[in-house]
Design a protein around this nucleic acid. Structure first.
Length: 255
DNA sequence: GCGACAG
DNA sequence: ATCTTGTCGC
């Protein structure tokens, strides 16, 4: 009889690593949709954002959020908040194994309840190809859902020589206005993403990378076009609404 | 060995 | 991710 046992953390990470390497080959790094070819993204009507928010002392309970916004108006057309019980811990490089299952469930609910509102592209809070094994959560969600995805991280993941060193800070300082960007090139010369000044009033950039079914330049341009503030509106709305859900359903513990 | 490390 | 108010500036 085959015995199953909870793998040690290190073995679990090895399994996850090979899973990421396997799925990495399924990522499509070019524009596959008609609207992506158009200078003004004509034909793009719905963009989504996903995020998970947690309660302070509980890292196992979270509110999984999916929002669909109109484009280019960026008004919320659909919202889904769902409390979920996470099983996987947060380990840098393996964020997808912790959060993706619940994001896929949210997309599934959308498909069943409002199929007409299925998004044409999903913004994910985190990285895509800008990852240790070039398969961050944006790629993971993209490959498993089949939807075009863009990864937008608020902090730089230190992969293959990328770091917030002097040279990096210098390049950031050179970003003059919203829309300006520079490539994030690894020590081996590969471009894994771009640092983007998402709007005029932010000195701190966001890190954009390919998730699935979109080119890097299109992802950067689209991200900029979805920014009212530093963080793309779809992700920002998902964050705001999931936190609001927690505030109203799980009031801070009193004395 | 030490530090760094998406959310 | 989360703990946290006001404050300075456009």
């Amino acid at each position: 009889m085959t015995q199953m046992s909870a793998p040690l953390a290190e073995d679990q990470m090895k399994e996850w690593s090979s899973e990421q390497s396997r799925l990495r080959g399924l990522v499509i790094q070019h524009d596959t949709e008609p609207w992506q070819q158009d200078p003004h993204f004509s034909g793009l009507k719905r963009v989504a954002g996903v995020d998970l928010s947690f309660i302070k002392g509980d890292d196992a309970s979270a509110c999984a959020q999916l929002v669909v916004l109109s484009y280019p108006q960026l008004e919320v057309l659909y919202e889904d908040s769902q409390m979920v019980a996470l099983t996987a811990p947060y380990i840098t490089g393996f964020l997808a194994f912790r959060e993706t299952p619940f994001l896929l469930e949210a997309l599934k609910r959308l498909q069943e309840n409002k199929p007409g509102l299925m998004p044409q592209v999903v913004f994910v809070d985190g990285n895509g190809l800008l990852h240790y094994r070039e398969f961050g959560i944006a790629c993971h969600l993209g490959v498993l859902s089949g939807l075009p995805c863009v990864g937008v991280a608020k902090n730089l993941l230190n992969v293959e020589g990328l770091a917030k060193n002097e040279e990096h800070r210098s390049k950031i300082a050179a970003l003059q206005k919203g829309g300006d960007s520079f490539p994030l090139t690894t020590s081996s010369g590969k471009v894994l993403g771009k640092a983007l000044r998402s709007w005029d009033k932010s000195s701190k950039p966001v890190y954009v990378s390919i998730g699935h079914k979109i080119s890097l330049d299109t992802a950067v341009k689209l991200t900029h076009s979805c920014c009212r503030y530093r963080v793309p509106e779809p992700i920002r709305q998902a964050d705001i609404r999931s936190r609001e859900y927690l505030r109203s359903h799980f009031p801070p513990a009193d004395t």
